[in-house]
Design a protein around this nucleic acid. Structure first.
Lengths: 344, 344
DNA sequence: GTTAGCACTCAAACATATTGAGTGCTAAAT
DNA sequence: ATTTAGCACTCAATATGTTTGAGTGCTAAC
């Protein structure tokens, strides 16, 4: 267990390092307001803190920098809560003041403001469609061979696909099919759509539609709905202004990860527990992200969780500030969505 | 006017520099197969070429590098046409072999393959919607206050917006309105939609619908269609593997430009003439792009131009190779689109 | 007109001090 | 028993000097 003095020193070291990005030495520390004892004492305490793994040296005679364990402790126990400036508050509010009813646009704007305010990169995992309920299916023929299939959900999400229509299928068959689909499927969640079509609807279709067989392909085309939520990114360039990323190699590998999206997507999905989640450096388990921390929060409509908003920055991140901002945006976003969709 | 020998030297200098990225000296040149005269002669010729502004020194005793004027001349007159490897060809074909009917997806895949093949950043200006013809308008109520308005075009593009519905408007009014809109507007180009609604449709609506006034806002909401085409980017990270961008500052300002999209968008719009366009360094007129060249081509359906595909790379770019690839992708894309939409 | 030869230039690579911020340890002070 | 002053030591960063090699321009000979 750490003594109060050790905690104080640890906190001051990390605060200073987050602020200035330079290893912190005993002399620097001894000059801080909160520190009342001499540099020699500090050196002794630092030696202990290092032995316990909370801080590290960059070389044998350097000052100390926080280790991942140090950051972890700091985030869990030592964060000094921060206030948002009224200016920041105003900026956040301004987004939700406009009456934007498009879920996606709102989410994208949130990503933008997050990266603007924090100067880090923001990532937003878009609203999950799978829990939406089907509101309407529509098929609109474009020409003899193709048509657009449109799915509208209760949250106003529109999904559309171009499908091919076998020559043998005529307009009235198509119409009949759409009617049956709507009759049987409206109100079902998007997730169970595929299942329901094959288990419940297929028989009805077979009974009523002459060309059922040739229609099969059309149906198969249609229900290939996207399984993954969209990923919105903002402020990628901000990464480049962080001094820890003045090594092109590091930036490159990080950018490649972000660009591929796949692994990254998994990372965000994993941390979809409610509340703020912080993963530091190697906790992210993605090579290329050793020097990064990821802070995530979730947003929802009422109790129904929709997606994740996150900030990606260097491990030397302004945790306190970012957490405050993320909390604010997440709760404002949730509030706005809840108001519109639950009481609307 | 340049002599044949000067042209030869200029070409070999640029070819070599594009390949190795290092200033080219007279000794290096004299060893090239095509060069039959001594390094001293070359030095004399290079002095002349420099005076004419085609090549430059990086410092007083360095080898020469091409100037922007040199690149311009090279691109306009000295390009040695290249063949695509069968492997590259196969990769390109593979995209268009799949039957993807979604215009946007196809375009996005093209962007991906372009950046993969060239190792530069690719940018694709998505299909312009403004020339599409309206195929169908649909309004699907979500709850008492809101509904989704859906526009389908003849090219299968679907545009949707969430709109608010005044309390005084009932379902039958809404239905009537949609009918009138469809009756009057189907076949109109998206561009003229707004105009037509106010000039031609407004009167009809007023005559037939009791709640015309309160419906006005709904209509206004609806026809706010996006004016700008979508921008698809792929291979941003590729920039970082170019040796000319090992300066974080340069990369940063470039990334910021790309991220803001606005200026960039204009740049692409400007070069929407048919055929290959090359802009080199300062010709791009955007600060941050001094070290970049942009090569663009257009794609179309039949004769109707749809959008632009482009490659962004350092001025020291493999012009010949990129142009070949860009040409191939543009023509394959055009062919695929033309086949599907004109003969479909 | 072309080329060999020479003096000269400069970036890059390497080696060698110098400085300063930092450490750990010990012995004296509290 | 803590705390602190003092000292020897370490190492990154910086500056300084040296060497090397690829390059140039110019001149005189071919």
């Amino acid at each position: 267990m750490l003594t109060d003095r050790q905690l104080l020193i640890l906190q001051v070291i990390i605060d200073d390092f987050i602020r200035y990005g330079q290893p912190v030495g005993s002399r620097t520390l001894s000059k801080k307001e909160k520190i009342t004892f001499s540099s020699a004492t500090i050196r002794n305490e630092m030696a202990d803190l290092e032995e316990l793994g909370y801080i590290e040296k960059t070389h044998i005679s350097s000052g100390r920098v926080p280790s991942e364990k140090g950051y972890r402790y700091y985030v869990d126990h030592l964060l000094s809560p921060q206030h948002l400036t009224t200016e920041d508050m105003r900026k956040i509010r301004s987004i939700f003041a406009e009456r934007i009813y498009e879920l996606e646009k709102l989410v994208q704007k949130s990503a933008q403001i997050l990266s603007d305010l924090t100067s880090y990169t923001s990532i937003v995992l878009g609203p999950a469609v799978k829990d939406n309920k089907l509101k309407r299916i529509q098929i609109i023929p474009l020409n003899k061979e193709t048509a657009v299939a449109i799915f509208v959900t209760d949250k106003g999400h529109v999904e559309n696909r171009v499908i091919t229509i076998p020559a043998s299928v005529n307009a009235s068959d198509l119409e009949k099919m759409v009617n049956i689909l709507n009759e049987r499927l409206i109100g079902s969640s998007i997730m169970e759509l595929k299942d329901k079509i094959y288990k419940e609807v297929a028989n009805v279709l077979r009974a009523h539609i002459y060309n059922y067989d040739s229609m099969l392909k059309t149906i198969a085309d249609m229900i290939e709905l996207p399984r993954e939520e969209k990923l919105f990114l903002a402020g990628r360039a901000n990464m480049l202004s962080q001094p820890e990323f003045n090594d092109i190699q590091k930036v490159h590998s990080l950018m490649k990860i972000i660009e591929q999206e796949k692994e990254f997507y998994r990372l965000l999905r994993r941390s979809s527990k409610k509340g703020i989640q912080v993963t530091i450096g190697h906790e992210n388990q993605l090579s290329g992200m050793e020097n990064c921390s990821l802070i995530t929060a979730t947003y929802s409509i009422g109790e129904e969780q929709l997606g994740t908003i996150a900030i990606l920055g260097p491990t030397r991140m302004e945790y306190s500030r970012v957490i405050t901002i993320l909390n604010q945006v997440a709760s404002d976003l949730t509030k706005a969505l809840t108001d519109w969709y639950q009481n609307g």
